[in-house]
């Protein structure tokens, strides 16, 4: 049984189990209040699933892409929770969870997942169905594109405003069962170097 957290768009927290599926999922598409809501959502998801922390076998986290400040809240929370229960931290690409949900709900063919990347850009990934292990086949991405220059979708374009943590957790469960972990690296998918404005250098006066 896993706790799963994604704050790459809004905030979503879930408790999942490979047999039982998504036992609880709470969230909001509010993209500004991750730090405020993440704790209450963890508490509520655990309560709804009737699970105590010690019964979890790991914590899955959406690693983005997503606006940095919010994205980090969920990753930091997932890391800390995993540390607290002494269980593994399982990173997952957030777009993969969107694709998995879409195909699971009956979608077929090509899928383009698009999420907000701020600064007049989108983060984009292309998918082509689920493979034999039930994991989504990502063809390209995630990568950034200016909002009016997103490549034409091979199939359907889907703009996601909330990445479901239930799907993050299920991907982690499926990949574990198939011996295909890790699904993503430990570093957040920032896709952008930090914005630094080096201060104007005064001439050296010595």
């Amino acid at each position: 049984m896993l706790l799963a957290i994604d704050t790459s768009t809004g905030t979503s927290v879930a408790v999942v189990d490979r047999e039982g599926g998504i036992l609880a999922e709470v969230g909001t598409d509010d993209s500004m209040r991750h730090a405020e809501v993440v704790g209450g959502f963890i508490r509520d998801a655990l309560a709804e699933a009737g699970v105590t922390p010690s019964r979890l076998s790991g914590v899955a986290a959406g690693m983005g892409p997503g606006p940095f400040t919010g994205l980090r809240v969920g990753i930091a929370a997932a890391h800390a929770f995993a540390l607290g229960i002494g269980r593994p931290f399982v990173p997952v690409v957030s777009h993969d969870a969107v694709a998995w949900s879409w195909y699971h709900d009956g979608g077929t063919g090509g899928l383009q997942v698009v999420t907000d990347a701020r600064r007049r850009e989108f983060a984009v990934s292309e998918y082509d169905g689920l493979d034999a292990d039930d994991l989504p086949v990502r063809l390209t991405g995630p990568e950034l594109a200016p909002r009016d220059e997103v490549p034409a979708a091979r199939g359907i374009r889907f703009d996601a405003h909330l990445v479901p943590a239930g799907a993050i957790g299920m991907l982690a469960e499926l990949a574990f069962a198939a011996g295909r972990l890790p699904l993503a690296g430990d570093a957040p998918l920032y896709l952008r170097a930090p914005d630094v404005t080096p201060s104007a250098r005064k001439r050296v006066l010595r």
């Binding site: 991750h34 993440v38 704790g39 508490r43 655990l46 922390p53 930091a76 890391h79 800390a80 607290g84």
Partner: peptide, 23 residues
Amino acid sequence: LAGALMVGVGAAKALALSLEVPI
């Protein structure tokens, strides 16, 4: 710094919940 503070806040809440202790 807001973005810096949020890392600590997110982590601390989750750590407290995982240990079932007050924050």
